Amino acid sequence: MTARVKICGLTRPAHVQAVAECGAAYAGFVFFAKSPRNVSIAQARDLALTLKPGVAKVGLVVNATNDELDAILAEVPLDMLQLHGKESPARVAEIRARYGLPVMKAVGVADAADLDQLAAYEAVADQILVDAKAPKGADLPGGNGLSFDWTLIADRKWSKPWMLAGGLTPENVALAIEKTGATQVDVSSGVEAAPGQKDDALVRAFVAAAAYS
């Protein structure tokens, strides 16, 4: 099974080019000041404009206000919004209706109890990102290089497209796909030489591993 790949946290033109060339389906740009992968609106606009057609441009935001989203979308030609904060199902629905863009909602998972919230978000989002839950007190809601127990979602049936994230690397992504049945996977820190600095060889290796899982 070939999984569609999202490379998130892109910050440099060369890395955007590598993502496009290796066959990734999604390119992610982070609008969150605490992240080492944060980009300005101007940077994201320039990076997005270099992408070839067919690669979906995803903007990751964390508890963004309408004013913040207005500013981003006025400049950056995004294809999807990824909500990675504590947005409620009602807020997800509001954003989707206001901007007319597909919305992906990230849900952090650490144990079986965290799965209960998935149904509410499935009802209002276009896609679900199932990610490892950030540790208490962490500055980042994602991109921490942590995984979760994949057997928690091994037999789950999904009503919407979903994406697996959390601690994925070129070395373990094939196993993760096998264990969960994921048809889409998301990676950020797992293909970096340093926080916020993508490694082109790791990006290519990850996409290749996801394709031959």
Results as ranks from 00 to 15, higher is better:
residue 201 A to V: 10
residue 92 V to P: 02
residue 121 Y to H: 01
residue 203 V to F: 05
residue 98 R to A: 14
residue 105 K to R: 13
residue 110 A to M: 07
residue 118 L to R: 05
residue 6 K to Y: 06
residue 87 E to P: 01
residue 15 H to R: 11
residue 6 K to H: 00
residue 77 P to T: 02
residue 38 N to M: 10
residue 198 K to L: 07
residue 66 N to V: 13
residue 87 E to Y: 02
residue 193 A to I: 13
residue 54 G to L: 08
residue 32 F to E: 11
residue 66 N to S: 10
residue 173 V to R: 15
residue 59 G to S: 06
residue 56 A to C: 08
residue 31 F to N: 15
residue 91 R to I: 08
residue 130 V to L: 12
residue 68 E to N: 06
residue 60 L to S: 13
residue 135 P to N: 13
residue 164 L to Q: 15
residue 98 R to L: 12
residue 202 L to S: 08
residue 105 K to C: 07
residue 136 K to S: 14
residue 20 A to W: 08
residue 173 V to S: 09
residue 163 M to C: 11
residue 22 C to L: 06
residue 106 A to R: 02
residue 102 P to K: 08
residue 3 A to Q: 01
residue 18 A to D: 03
residue 70 D to M: 00
residue 31 F to A: 10
residue 105 K to H: 09
residue 23 G to Q: 01
residue 63 N to D: 13
residue 139 D to W: 06
residue 9 G to Q: 04
residue 48 A to C: 14
residue 10 L to V: 00
residue 199 D to S: 14
residue 124 V to R: 00
residue 87 E to V: 05
residue 190 G to I: 07
residue 42 A to Y: 07
residue 129 L to C: 03
residue 166 G to Y: 06
residue 152 L to S: 12
residue 52 K to Y: 11
residue 152 L to I: 13
residue 180 T to W: 09
residue 168 L to H: 14
residue 8 C to D: 01
residue 172 N to C: 10
residue 185 V to R: 12
residue 209 A to I: 09
